[in-house]
Amino acid sequence: MRAIVFVSSVANPEEKLILEGDHFKNIPDDCIANDFDLIAVEAAVRLKEQGIIDEIVVFCLGPALAHVQKALAMGADRAIFGECDNRDLTPQIVVDTALAHIDPDDATIYMLGKLGVNFESHCVPQMLANRLSCPCVCSVYKIEKADKRWQLHCEDDVGIPIFEAEAPFVMTTELRLAEPRFPSLPNIIKARRKPIESVQIEATSQRPQTLSLEMAADIQRSCKWLSTDDLIAMVKGLES
């Protein structure tokens, strides 16, 4: 059983976002791996430790190799990396490139974070599943496997659905599925010898549709101090 984990590279949300026209200012060193995708990497590594998965392949498109090396140091076996500017990527291109360089087979599961912290497009897993004609299960917080059947416990706004699926399928990981580990120094050194296959992104005619990015206006608020009594009167007033 093989797991292919998609790791996207995003502008660091902790830093001040700098915009240039229709894209984020591209500073490769400031890009970090999408937090949610690292949860998917960690989940895959734990599945490997349990002997459920034999091989973990990291698929990453972005300006810098750092995240790929981090994922390898966390325990992935090999990586497919396409160097490109983030502004050239659309969900369609990510999916096209991935499918051109992996051999989809029935012994593969595809894992992604539940959300990209930058564009929040929610498109890649569904597009991938659609192209592979396989199920897409979102926001998985618990994974169980018996024989060939996987039980995937998910989260929803209104409840907890449990899906049962057989590989191949696409899943997105929820925050509490796993806490990404800090790679140890020996593993970081070992990761340098793991194979990284370099690929070209699939050029399609379809370009990103963004016209411009703008910082949302900060709403200026002036804080008026209240006493607890005033507050309670105010909150009671909301009720009516």
């Binding site: 949300p13 976002l17 912290v117 497009s121 963004t210 411009s212 990015l213 910082m215 949302a216």
Partner: peptide, 26 residues
């Protein structure tokens, strides 16, 4: 697919990204 579409900037087609910190006009 346009997730998080907002109507505040009509007639521009805009959506929130980065948890509402940035407006992406399409």
């Amino acid at each position: 697919f346009i997730p998080n579409l907002c109507t505040r900037f009509l007639p521009d087609c805009a959506r929130w990204i980065c948890a509402g910190r940035v407006v992406e006009k399409r």
